[in-house]
């Protein structure tokens, strides 16, 4: 028996609907983060933005965004919190 079975055996998700909820949250979060990043870029960043997107490497893209946008981590979390509040209001 491997340790990961012991440690993570209970993590198995069987409810398909729960998966759908998580997947959708994931997609929404990602879309909003991408939008927020675009809104924080200036016209002068467009060329570099296009170049890095063409490389189709999320890691490179993220490095780029983190360098260009000050306090990106704070902004991302602000976005996440906002989304969380919106979800609460609708339920």
């Amino acid at each position: 028996m491997k340790i990961n079975t012991v440690l993570y055996g209970s993590a198995k998700v069987t409810d398909v609907s729960e998966d759908k909820i998580f997947e959708t949250i994931n997609r929404v979060v990602l879309l909003r983060i991408k939008t927020m990043i675009l809104k924080n870029l200036g016209k002068e960043d467009v060329f570099a933005f296009k170049e890095v997107v063409k490389k189709n490497d999320p890691k490179l893209f993220f490095d780029f965004a983190y360098k260009r946008i000050p306090h990106l981590a704070d902004k991302i979390h602000s976005e996440i919190r906002q989304l969380s509040l919106e979800l609460q209001k609708t339920q």
Partner: peptide, 21 residues
């Protein structure tokens, strides 16, 4: 070395789920 965006978004999912009262 894995995709930070994917990691971030799934981390965010966890945060949101934990955050919903």
């Amino acid at each position: 070395g894995t995709d930070p965006l994917a990691t971030l978004s799934t981390a965010a999912t966890a945060a949101i789920v934990l955050a919903i009262p």
